[in-house]
Design a protein around this nucleic acid. Sequence first.
RNA 1: GGGCCUUUAGCUCAGUUGGUUAGAGCGCGCCUCUGAUAAGGGCGAGGUCUCAGGUUCGAGCCCUGAAAGGCCCA
Length: 1050
Amino acid sequence: MFRPVSPKLNIVLMEEGVLRFWKKHQIFQKTMEQREGGPEYVFYEGPPTANGKPGVHHVLARAFKDVFPRYKTMQGYHVIRRGGWDTHGLPVEIEVEKKLGFTNKQQIEDFGIARFNELCRESAFSYIQEWEKLTDRIAYWVDLDTAYITYTNDYIESVWWILKNFWDKGLLYQGFKVVPYCPRCGTPLSDHEVSLGYDEATDPSVYVRMPLVDEPDTALLVWTTTPWTLPANVAVAAHPEETYVVVEREMEEGGSEKLILAEALLEKVFNNQPFTVVRKMKGKSLKGKRYQPLFTFVPPDKPAHYVVMGDFVTTEDGTGLVHMAPAFGAEDMSAALEYDLPILMTVAPNGTFISDVRPWAGMFVKDADPLITEDLRQRGLLFRSGTYTHTYPFCWRCDTPLLYYARPTWYIRTSQFKERMVELNEQINWYPAHIKTGRFGNWLANNIDWALGRERYWGTPLPVWECEQCKHQECIGSVAELSQKAGRDLSGLDLHRPHVDEIIYSCPECGGKMRRIPELIDVWFDSGSMPYAQWHYPFENQEIFARQYPADYICEAVDQTRGWFYSLHAISTLLNDQVSFKNVICLGLILDGKGEKMSKSRGNVADPWDVLNKHGADAMRWYLYTASPPGQERRYSSELVSEVVRNFTLTLWNTYSFFVTYANLDGWKPDASHLPQYSDLDRWLRSSLHTLVRDVTEAMESYDVLGATRPIETFVDQLSNWYLRRSRRRFWKSESDEDKRAAYATLYEALVTLSKLLAPTMPFIAEELYQNLVRSLDESAPESVHLAQWPGYDLAVIDERLNREMALVMKLASVGHAARNKANRKVRQPLAEAAFSVGTAEEMRVVEAYADLLEDELNVKKVRVLDTTAEAVAYSLNPLPKQLGQKYGSKFPAIRKALLELEPETAAKRLLAGKPLEVVLEGETFTILPEEVEVRAMAREGFAVASEGAYLAALVTDLTPELVKEGLAREFVRRVQDLRKQADLEISDRIRLYYSATPLLAEAVKDFAGYIQAETLCIEMVDSLPAENLPTTQDTFDDQEVTIALKRVE
RNA sequence: GGGCCUUUAGCUCAGUUGGUUAGAGCGCGCCUCUGAUAAGGGCGAGGUCUCAGGUUCGAGCCCUGAAAGGCCCA
């Protein structure tokens, strides 16, 4: 006996039961233990940070991460599914700062780095329980107990080892570069951090006059969106090849002036204001022209304030003359190096003006923009001011506008490995494929050195020590090495600030004091080090590492292209000269129901629990897998998930429930020793099933999640709405014959196979089915579907022709139903005949072969092929372009025309008889084969027909008295069945029927008594109403009245 | 300005190496079936496949250009 299954499914209760089962029997642990010794399948967890609540986008990533480890486990692979947590970095610091109400770094220093970092350590896991709960509920099987944590000493030590390796190869260097810099956080940002924070910004748009020294009343017209950089101006750049003009114009305040700008921008700058072009010249003739500085707060220590040449100057915006402040722009800085210009540093690291800039000293530079503009206006140097909206980078965490700012910082020479990174990327299988050469490939091809240093507190310290006196530098690659330098055992040392900073040793060169430099490293370097650091490699676990590197599979959202995907790839390339992951699914963003991006900052993050508590994890996962290709953006809402439940889960569940109900009634059990006598329908279902297994397996092998899920939906639909609907009678009939056993065996095989195919994607319902269908009968079977073997398929069972034939039969049934509808003949009324016309001789054979099935489905006494000679239909030919076009190319239109000009009746009959046609074109004879032309029947008037393409169904709708009575009997049965249901009878309960009916109906009931009794499990029919009070129904149909009562018989 | 992606029914999406009649689900209206079903079936309304060129006997699909939206980068 199978455990009885209600057709009503409470998904959430079912899933919670399965969760308890997994926990009680430690199934997850067993999936790892039982596969030990099997081939390794390597999965890397991209570590999230648990200092915020997990959202739907995390469910998306975790759902996709989960699929392949489960699939591979079922194939016998050993998959270590180690979790991981990213714990360092600004996101954590900022949360703590918020809690403490801090707004700048000095407050942290005052508070104490040790205390601050302790709070960071706690904060990093403030939502750990939420994460664990959600991970558990969605059945993302990842080992959180042994998860790697980036703040542990072991992890940090491995990172140090990697850095030391780079140091030894000369790949770490300290540079002075203009970097995107967050004045609030007081730290430069890496490029991938910058890329996280672009947003629309409205900045001032300021046109400034820079009067020439040697030409009275003539000024360079310069445009900028950052007035705050003007006090640091040292030069103006012009493009050597562009054409510049001197224009003369009247000033609003009286008098006239001459301005120099690029010719191409005249209209943009002056709009409709009048002006006269005085002179034209190439940009290079401006070279060296001196102008009066706008400000003199910081006196330059080198020659400055003249025109320089720059190829980077464009005539898209502005005036074609670019203001240069080397401290605040990368191009400005390179021009400064080229022309030996001074670098005026007017801004302090906290983003405020230094005291030399007297009027605005201490003011945040962006806040000073309007004051500076006003100052210029008052001095007559402002030509025009307005606003300019463009995309501008903001700090990805605190939203402060970034400044481009010259800072000393540490770099990794990744650009030296640009070509190699591009080459190695060729080995990676990207899903979707375009990321490889597109977004990721371009990013690698344009690689610039990795800005590694961070002037912060909570992170992996850069292990470089420097001598106070002689500036000698050393990189430390392990705790042991540091202990040896320090001359004491430091194995208990916390490798964070401020503790590491306290380790001071004497310089081997000069005996001075070696102190650690203040910088931390970019947190992305932490996560990119996880292949090594998660095992504390190379200090421990060298063998495990060898087996667990590189990864077979990783999966994250597309925003990790420049994040984790890059840091993994860069570190692996520089360290081992090989890839660190072989296959990667790169997920698209998740959007809300309106199609808008979900993000913490927008506050439209849907709570995954809303759906989990209502529709369950399986449905949520399934929706995410099937909604759209993984790389595409996808919309998400509770309504979309509920469709999954209605259309897929419940269909499957009810098929399962049906099977269990009837199998239990019949006491059926799988019997491997008995070979079933499969019917055509069974053979078709098995052929479809094995085709499905083949297709799903192939899709899984190529990381095609959509291909591994959508076909299952189609199969379940056909299983339920064709196989089962067509097979119901086989299960109902009272005798247990060969045919019935074959039906059970077929349905059982389908359900068990489905449970395995669904295990990686819908782990709950898969387990539920498996436990009842397999484990309840066979104690020796694997304990869980997730420990079972992935199903194989039998090519001998796959019958493509059968698949095609059944597709045709379903099509014909559909056309037949359409014909009934048109003729207004409900299905309960039997009809004498249905005749089909099909396109080819081969299809005619199919109609005959499946006549029984169609008769039953359409409730007609006879199904046959429409007679080509005797019956009143007309034919037309449809030359098939696919066949004929490919065969005859440009002659196809002429051949088509010739075919259509043939006498259709004669030609159609030849073709349907399987004989070729001949057409003559310009003296050339072409032989047209039957399979190259489709024959279409057309209905003549007066027939109950429906057609679709080449397929036509014609119904004989005349009713004999006998057919009418049979129809009435069916109506009667239906009323009885309704009554049984109302009376809450068991399916197998026997009944006694009492009825009273108008004469014609009464006659029909008597004539079809045997049929009625068999259908309704009635042991006796009484042609009168009972005295006692019994479940009763009364109804009128087809001009007949009836009252029915029933009594359950023990 | 550059790179990548997307654009097909009211909504969410399919659409095989190009094949003449572009599909499904949801929603809507009408009809129907049912002792597995929260369902199923049929019919209908709803499409200039974003636009313009080109290649081809034939283009939703290939090529060129444009537009709109998105993501990323300057």
